[in-house]
Design a protein around this nucleic acid. Structure first.
Lengths: 235, 235
DNA sequence: ATCAACGTCAACGTCGGCGTTGACGAACTT
DNA sequence: AAGTTCGTCAACGCCGACGTTGACGTTGAT
């Protein structure tokens, strides 16, 4: 007997190093169970014993697949930003596109990615990973940095839309962004894949509201609110 | 000496019964400190020792003003729904109003109340009080019930707007509501009273986007997305 | 001067949840 | 058949946060 072998973290490391299909699959199952509960009850309210029950395992077995509760969270929300940023960068690099086209594309891409990665992305949104003060870890800082980067890219698209004369200039870019993000990110409270609506449908519907408004033609004649809004309220 | 007098919960009860101005004021201060931290870090992540420090007291002193951490939360978010529901009922009772007028009113009322009750209402939004599974307490059930009631009233206003021909009928009422609520409730992530924009300004801006869209006139000519959206995506 | 009430706080009991240990059967190896 | 690896789990230590205790100055009433 080697003196210090049966240590769970070592067992986990070796298992992870072998990278067998079985192990990876079961690990994904555990992550899935955790993601489901994190989304349902929030990260802090979720007990590891619940995750274990959801996955059909003992709580201790969780540690064979993940080193800590934090690690579960990080692995769940780890990649969600990268795809979004990559997509935005690609759109930004395509010089043939207008700001509005870029904005529309990124909007649809985000919503469909929310759907595909369900519920991982919604956990990311719910847990407010971008908030300072959650933790001062390197990982948290990296997330925050990438979030800011994505924010800046979106704002740039919006500014393009304004400069190109398509988007109303009486609304500050930040409010454009918050309106857009609001409709989109609020989906984490109600959207469920397979619930009658696809992510694509939701995205296109919200985009059409954002661009053209929710009024009918006759409604638009009755209710006219296209004046510069902020100055109206100010004056 | 009476055998069981110096009991903190009794002291609290008698103090609360007396209802002195001092006590009420200090209690409000404690609630305010808690609300600030609950909004910043979330309910579960906030330690009572932090609340105490924020209020400039010892942790034990908190219990002279509130019986538990839960009580703090409940008292913070307790009344936020009632005012909203009362406003909606008042609007619903006024037979001279159209659906759109009701919707506009409630939208502005909600946003300004978010501002006035800051940060209490944002704590309510953030902590997802409406979610089942948070707790099975009577209080939680009551909150859930009132949330549903408010939801139904909003949906009714939207249906009126559709039936009166003002709102687009190609978008299901639920999506109208989610778009509206999305823009509005997402403010809990970025809106800070005194940060350059009033709640009223935000509400009117978002309302104008919701009704008229974010496009300029020239943008509207270039980008036409007012067709029935869902069927387009489906077909 | 005395006493009660008030606001406060150091110190304690308690408990729930995290992460680890060490061992047990099953399956696969040699 | 003996050994090894794999997945699993009963049991433990530990810590941090909640809620309570009991007592201390201070203030105001008698």
């Amino acid at each position: 007997m080697n003196d210090k072998s049966s240590n769970i973290s070592k067992r986990r490391r070796t298992a992870r190093a072998k990278d067998s299909a079985d192990y990876v699959a079961k690990r994904a199952e555990v992550l899935g169970a955790a993601a489901t509960l994190f989304k349902q009850q929030g990260f802090h309210s979720t007990r590891l014993v619940d995750v274990a029950r959801e996955a059909g395992l003992d709580r201790a077995t969780i540690y064979y697949y993940a080193g800590s509760k934090e690690e579960l969270l990080q692995d769940i929300v780890g990649g969600v930003l990268d795809t979004a940023i990559a997509a935005a960068q690609e759109l930004g690099a395509d010089v043939t596109l207008t700001g509005m086209q870029r904005l529309h594309q990124i909007f649809v891409i985000l919503m469909t990615s929310y759907e595909e990665n369900y519920p991982a992305t919604f956990v990311y949104i719910q847990e407010q990973m971008h908030q300072v003060g959650v933790q001062e870890t390197e990982w948290a800082k990296a997330i925050l940095k990438r979030t800011r980067l994505f924010d800046r890219m979106l704002i740039d698209f919006i500014k393009e839309g304004i400069e190109e004369g398509d988007l109303r200039s009486d609304i500050p870019p930040r409010l454009h962004e918050n309106a857009l993000f609001g409709m989109l990110n609020w989906t984490h409270r109600w959207f469920v894949p397979g619930g009658g609506l696809t992510g694509r449908q939701v995205a296109e519907t919200f985009w059409s509201i954002y661009t053209g408004g929710a009024l009918t033609d006759s409604g638009r004649k009755k209710i006219c609110t296209s004046d510069p809004v902020l100055s109206v309220v100010n004056g």
